[in-house]
Design a protein around this nucleic acid. Structure first.
Lengths: 117, 117
DNA sequence: TGCAAATATAAGGATACGGTAATTCAGCAG
DNA sequence: CTGCTGAATTACCGTATCCTTATATTTGCA
């Protein structure tokens, strides 16, 4: 039932898409997501894993939560976060692969490989 | 040969990924890409299609070009741009579908559908 | 040569963003 | 109730981003 045909989007929709990309456009947020990809984590665990300041981690977690990309679960003193929207991991993977290919091309061209202009 | 196993990325790599997302995090740039999705376009055509100022369009095109997302071809007075990295279109499509589903869920929950909390 | 059109660049101001430090809030132990 | 720990919030600063206006550059043509 999902529409596969590429249609033209209105400016408001494009703004929503842009906003989603913007949430993913921060290295620390990506690092947090990468950590959460391995499973649920408390704020403290994320702080230790990333090496970032607690306030900073908390703020970025709020941003991710408001975007519905992560979910929170409170248990006693700790708050646990987990990935709520797995599609963002796919997005990162796609970008990563593209990056890898691009760098490989650059490397080839540096080496003087004529097949990759 | 491409590694399908999700590995842990370094901070520098995450910065590159974040940078790529940042390029896609602007509505006007997405609008431009959407226009270019239909084929090669001159700057003027893009200006008319988007309704944005010429200087603004030009600046955003530079940003997209520097990110290797679009390519330019000069012909006489005109400069034609085209999508150089089709994967960004996939990214947009993924976000779009996710957005659509999310909104559909919200709509259901507003309607009181108990299956979609 | 000189003008006009298409594109790019520069400078300016408003806004948003990210990081840090300090404060506050919530839950648990004594 | 008091004190302690984990987490969230606030205030502040420096920087980056975006848009607009104005100017520069390039190219085609009279």
């Amino acid at each position: 039932m999902t529409n596969k045909t590429p249609k033209t989007l209105g400016k408001d929709t494009l703004s929503l898409v842009a906003e989603r990309f913007k949430v993913l456009s921060d290295p620390l947020r990506l690092q947090i997501l990468q950590e959460l990809r391995q499973g649920e984590r408390s704020v403290n665990e994320i702080v230790e894993a990333t090496g970032a300041a607690q306030a900073n981690v908390s703020r970025h977690l709020q941003i991710l939560a408001r975007a519905r990309i992560v979910d929170r679960r409170k248990q006693g003193l700790h708050v646990f976060y987990r990935v709520a929207d797995p599609t963002v991991l796919d997005l990162c993977a796609v970008v990563c692969n593209g990056l890898e290919e691009s760098l490989a091309r650059d490397l080839d061209s540096v080496r003087g490989n004529p097949d990759t202009p």
